[in-house]
Simulated assay, not measured.
Amino acid sequence: MAAPRKTAASKTSLAAKQAEATHNEKTEDEAPKVATFEFKGETYEVPADPLDIPMDVAYADSEMDVIEIVVGPEQWEKFRDTRPTIRDFGKFSELVLKASGQGEDEGN
Score class of each variant (00 low, 15 high):
residue 66 V to Q: 14
residue 65 D to P: 06
residue 67 I to E: 04
residue 69 I to V: 14
residue 49 D to N: 14
residue 95 L to T: 06
residue 102 Q to A: 09
residue 56 D to G: 11
residue 64 M to H: 13
residue 75 Q to A: 03
residue 86 I to W: 03
residue 57 V to F: 10
residue 70 V to H: 06
residue 91 K to N: 07
residue 57 V to A: 03
residue 43 T to P: 01
residue 61 D to C: 07
residue 78 K to D: 07
residue 49 D to Y: 08
residue 51 L to F: 13
residue 58 A to P: 10
residue 62 S to I: 01
residue 43 T to Q: 05
residue 41 G to L: 08
residue 104 E to Q: 09
residue 53 I to E: 12
residue 51 L to D: 15
residue 99 A to T: 04
residue 80 R to E: 15
residue 66 V to C: 09
residue 51 L to C: 11
residue 45 E to W: 03
residue 69 I to E: 05
residue 79 F to E: 09
residue 104 E to F: 07
residue 54 P to Y: 12
residue 103 G to T: 01
residue 102 Q to G: 08
residue 85 T to I: 14
residue 103 G to C: 08
residue 40 K to L: 05
residue 97 L to N: 12
residue 55 M to D: 14
residue 48 A to D: 13
residue 72 G to P: 08
residue 52 D to Y: 05
residue 85 T to K: 15
residue 98 K to L: 04
residue 89 F to D: 04
residue 54 P to Q: 09
residue 92 F to G: 11
residue 96 V to G: 02
residue 78 K to M: 03
residue 71 V to C: 03
residue 107 G to M: 11
residue 96 V to L: 06
residue 102 Q to F: 02
residue 60 A to G: 07
residue 48 A to Q: 10
residue 98 K to Y: 06
residue 78 K to E: 09
residue 86 I to H: 13
residue 76 W to D: 03
residue 95 L to C: 10
residue 97 L to H: 07
residue 63 E to S: 12
residue 101 G to A: 11
residue 51 L to T: 15
residue 96 V to K: 06
residue 80 R to N: 14
residue 62 S to K: 02
residue 107 G to T: 01
residue 46 V to W: 07
residue 95 L to M: 14
residue 102 Q to R: 15
residue 93 S to M: 12
residue 75 Q to T: 03
residue 51 L to V: 13
residue 79 F to L: 06
residue 96 V to C: 12
residue 64 M to T: 03
residue 72 G to K: 07
residue 83 R to N: 15
residue 75 Q to S: 07
residue 55 M to H: 10
residue 52 D to M: 00
residue 74 E to F: 05
